[in-house]
Write a protein that binds this DNA or RNA. Structure first.
Length: 270
DNA sequence: CTCCGATCCTGATGGC
DNA sequence: TGCCATCAGGATCGGA
């Protein structure tokens, strides 16, 4: 569910409420998500304070004096703040109860998400091989051009590959390709340096605007405070198959790439 | 190394 | 109303 802008939105909501606050207890209702929960480490958090909250790609990192908890929300995960009296519902798997009366609750119906533990999170196997953050100078047209060279997979697959660049999912890759005027099925190796420059700029502009809008709520995304995002109102092609392009008279088309649906305009994208 | 498809799981939706 | 198929924001894994 959540791509980079949604995780960033959650992070910005949680940070002022939780940093410096002591964790009183941790309630574990399910021992397994995608992988087993680090039960021992979660127990050791009790009585410790939150030192910092950070994001890397789609991962949300919580630092305590004992080490770091790594969250990944998968397709359907949510992290929300609520009062400690709110009863747990069907897919509420994990609660952190804080000294200020708040409860941080992890909900994940599909259970593709993960909760992991590490003393050095950036060296964790799942994070160490991630590509650069898309909103840093490391991710530029030259970098992406080099990663595309010799590759015959559709460029959209590369843009969504977290080992190439971390945090760009299906919605934002689809939107960025439209903004850059590039067809999602173009073999990555056929992109010119200029097209890579354009695609990187479009990706960054899309992510920045989505963060400003508080993310995209297609079904049930909510930030830490339970509020929806508004970027869905700005979507140019995602989910618009069969409708008229916003920039020309053509109809938006839909194809499947790597098992994911991709929308594009045959008039605007080459 | 590259690429493709299967896979983990539940819930919403639409056709019949 | 029920049943079934399809689809959904992710990322890993195995095999060709």
């Amino acid at each position: 569910m959540p791509e980079l802008p949604e995780v960033e939105t959650i992070l910005q909501g949680l940070r002022p409420q939780l940093v410096g606050v002591k964790i009183i207890s941790v309630v574990i209702r399910r021992l397994n998500l995608r992988w087993p929960l680090p039960v021992e480490a979660l127990r050791q958090l009790e009585g410790r304070s939150v030192c910092a909250l950070m994001r890397r790609g789609k991962y949300l990192l919580l630092q305590s004096e004992m080490g770091w908890i790594i969250f990944h929300l998968g397709m359907s995960g949510r992290l929300t703040l609520r009062s400690q009296t709110t009863p747990a519902q069907k897919h509420d798997h994990l609660d952190f109860l804080f000294a200020n009366g708040l409860c941080l609750r992890l909900t994940d119906p599909r259970r593709f998400g993960a909760v992991l533990w590490s003393c050095t999170p950036l060296e964790h196997p799942l994070l160490v091989s991630l590509g650069p953050e898309p909103l840093t100078p490391q991710f530029d047209g030259g970098f992406f051009f080099q990663r595309c060279r010799g590759r015959r997979v559709p460029v959209k697959n590369l843009l969504m590959d977290s080992h190439v660049v971390a945090g760009v999912g299906n919605i934002y890759a689809t939107e960025a390709l439209f903004k850059a005027g590039i067809l999602p099925i173009r073999p990555a190796g056929t992109l010119t340096q200029m097209e890579c420059d354009s695609l990187v700029s479009a990706t960054q502009a899309t992510l920045v605007e989505a963060i400003q809008q508080g993310g995209t709520t297609l079904r049930d995304f909510r930030n830490g405070d339970g509020a929806p995002g508004y970027f869905q109102q700005k979507l140019l092609v995602y989910g618009r198959e069969g409708q008229t392009c916003r920039h020309c008279p053509e109809l938006i088309q839909q194809i499947r790439l790597g098992g994911r649906s991709s929308c594009y305009c045959p008039g605007c994208q080459i």
